[in-house]
């Protein structure tokens, strides 16, 4: 938070001295909300980008406060203040299309990251494929169940792109196991406490019948684990998976309680910044290590429309390494 305030202060100071500002690229990022751990990691990763650290780029971060209109106004502010490029992590697929168009009309390239915008005007999207995540996590659950038994699905807020796409992936995996029955499918609104209550109630109404839990994010899977524990059941008797690789989930994977797949916030943030810089400075070469880390995601001279950051399954082997990398951000 201190670092963030400092950057804000520096940003303001630089605006006052146009001579200096011209040498430095001024890039702004609007993210849907800074309350969630994932966006915290995403923004710290952005600050750690080599081009930010060596002073080539000046980054300002705007907190969208979970309001599509707030994000739209932030983009307008960046247009008026003549930012060189904009990064956007939108709250909503559709609502972000208008501000993206406005920025592009004003000649400012916009790069999407983490969540999609339904707009052709985006320079590129650097994020992960949520359908794939939904399929991977459901497959982890079904594999542990041997393709037999009953599952429950804890969904994100109905209608959000993450929920829609992860469910699509969940269903894809479930099609491969026609014998598996979905007993319940309800929203836990990404929340651990809400999912915990749901699971407590399901363990009552489907006593002894639930074999697997597909949580569309880690928080809800962790809530299910707490419910199982408080019902006096054994977590090992259930196949449980989540998505995102939040710290608590990595620890739970280490203890053999669940499966999770890591969404690489670092690669999404740093990759998006590299693409944005390239859109402004034609002779730029990407400086982040992530392109070496994920050779399957090709740089293609910064001209591709989609950069899909691969998911990393969290395993007992890589858990400690992931936690260590996390502690640096």
């Amino acid at each position: 938070m201190k670092k963030f305030m400092l950057t804000l202060a520096m940003g303001t100071a630089l605006m006052a001295s146009p001579a200096l500002a011209q040498e430095k690229l001024k890039i702004g990022a609007t993210v849907y909300g800074l309350n969630a751990e994932f966006m915290q990691i995403w923004t710290s990763a952005l600050q750690q980008h080599p081009a930010v650290k060596n002073g080539e780029v000046d980054i300002t971060i705007f907190d969208g406060r979970y309001d599509a209109l707030v994000q739209q106004e932030q983009v307008n502010t960046m247009i008026t203040q003549q930012y060189d490029a904009i990064l956007i992590v939108p709250l909503d697929v559709e609502a972000a299309a208008a501000p993206v168009q406005a920025a592009v009309d004003a000649g400012i390239p916009v790069v999407g990251s983490n969540a999609r915008v339904n707009s052709e005007a985006l320079t590129a999207y650097v994020g992960s494929n949520d359908v794939e995540a939904g399929e991977l996590e459901a497959k982890a659950v079904l594999d542990k169940m041997g393709c037999k038994g009953n599952v429950v699905i804890l969904e994100g807020p109905i209608g959000q792109s993450g929920q829609i796409q992860r469910l699509e992936g969940n269903m894809k995996a479930l099609e491969a196991c026609p014998e598996v029955k979905v007993l319940e499918q309800q929203t836990g609104n990404w929340s651990r406490a809400e999912a915990q209550t749901l699971m407590e109630n399901w363990l009552t109404s489907h006593a002894g019948q639930i074999n697997g839990v597909i949580g569309q994010n880690d928080e809800m899977a962790l809530g299910a684990i707490e419910a199982i524990k408080s019902a006096g059941l054994k977590v090992e008797d259930f196949a449980i998976a989540g998505v995102d690789g939040v710290t608590d989930a990595i620890n739970a994977v280490k203890e053999g309680q669940m499966a999770s797949i890591l969404q690489d916030a670092n690669a999404q943030a740093q990759g998006a910044l590299d693409v944005a810089i390239k859109a402004v400075k034609k002779d730029y070469e990407p400086e982040s290590d992530i392109w070496k880390q994920y050779p399957q995601m090709e740089w293609k001279d910064g001209t591709a429309k989609d950069y899909l950051v691969p998911w990393t399954p969290v395993t007992t082997e890589n858990a400690d390494k992931l936690l260590e990398a996390r502690s640096k951000l």
């Binding site: 938070m1 800074l34 969630a36 751990e37 915290q40 939040v246 608590d248």
Partner: peptide, 22 residues
């Protein structure tokens, strides 16, 4: 709350504390 926790959760609570809730 967000400033105090840097916007991140505080995990790994000791069992004696969890005892209040569990």
């Amino acid at each position: 709350t967000l400033i105090y926790g840097n916007g991140r959760p505080v995990p790994a609570l000791v069992p004696e504390f969890r005892w209040i809730g569990t």
